[in-house]
């Protein structure tokens, strides 16, 4: 079976080459670069932790950007997942047009990070745009979406919540795989709809909630297209998410070392939060037929 073993590796060769060349080596290289000063003209110059010291002590743009990024993620991910779960729960019923609705709700996700949609957003939330017209129709004054720093970030959150489709499809698939007899048993025991949802449905959904949470979080931390097109990071840097800052430092100013340091801070934040999620998942994620001891 020796040949058989090598054969497996043979089929995996493209993947392994890609893993090394485009992921593993760049990953380590960016860690190295984050301790250097590198402007593309001269070769990287080792500068120790100077980049990190500057980030946390002298760079007010970074601190601002970091706060905005955390606010954005903690706002967007829970809102999006709650909405996705809510719609999935409504859809999970003997409805005639369930597929039609599912498709309709999925359309915005298909267009995803498309620039066209970011463009559309600029029009929708413009001072005389559709959103303000709709608000005006129900008696609310026009909102200054892009001029006011507290509102601008929220328009990007709304854009990503609008794209709740893929999280919803995953929730719906999980909901549909829940054993009907559990609900029948709950009904016989006299549990109402709300109690059934919180004590049966929700626990059984925790694995997919966990999956969606991690994926959406990693994605939200890397949001670029929305703020880049819709608000250009403004006003007053209120939508200047870290990926925008990294992009400008790296590809506009060519401060590759400094940009790598920002990227590593972002990466470490994502990693710590992911690890916290994994670690805490033992306490709140329920796997039916769990074989772990």
């Amino acid at each position: 079976m020796k040949g058989q073993r090598l054969l497996g590796l043979g089929y995996l060769t493209p993947y392994i080459v890609g893993l090394l060349v485009f992921t593993a080596v760049p990953f380590l290289a960016s860690l190295y670069l984050s301790f250097t000063s590198y402007d593309l003209m001269n070769s990287p110059r080792w500068s120790g932790i100077a980049n990190y010291v500057r980030l946390f002590t002298r760079d007010r743009t970074f601190i601002r950007s970091l706060n905005v990024t955390l606010l954005y993620v903690f706002l967007t991910v829970p809102l999006k997942l709650t909405f996705a779960l809510f719609i999935a729960a409504i859809l999970n019923y003997k409805l005639k047009f369930i597929n039609v609705f599912r498709t309709a709700f999925y359309v915005p996700s298909i267009l995803g990070g498309s620039i066209a949609i970011a463009v559309l957003w600029r029009y929708l939330f413009a001072s005389e745009g559709l959103v303000n017209m709709a608000l005006g129709a129900v008696g609310f004054g026009p909102v200054d979406w892009f001029g006011d720093p507290t509102n601008a970030l929220f328009t990007i959150t709304l854009l990503r919540c609008w794209q709740f489709g893929s999280a919803m499809v995953i929730f719906l698939a999980a909901l549909q795989s829940i054993d009907r007899s559990l609900y029948e048993a709950a009904e016989i025991d006299g549990a109402g709809k709300v109690r059934t949802f919180f004590f049966i449905t929700l626990p059984l959904l925790t694995p997919v909630i966990f999956f969606n949470l991690i994926m959406q979080m990693v994605q939200a931390f890397q949001e670029f297209n929305g703020p880049y097109i819709i608000t250009q990071g403004g006003p007053l840097k209120s939508t200047y998410l870290l990926p925008l800052y990294i992009y400008e430092e790296a590809f506009k100013k060519f401060n590759m070392g400094y940009a790598s340091a920002i990227a590593w801070v972002l990466f470490l934040i994502i990693m710590v939060l992911t690890l916290v999620a994994f670690w805490s998942s033992r306490k709140w994620v329920y796997y039916a037929g769990d074989k772990r001891s």
Binding site: T23, P26, F27, S30, M256, A263, L266
Partner: peptide, 14 residues
């Protein structure tokens, strides 16, 4: 799970 943002700069240099 790896955010692309962390490998993007060295990839560009490569």
């Amino acid at each position: 799970l790896l955010p692309n943002v962390v490998t993007r700069i060295p990839q560009y240099l490569l």
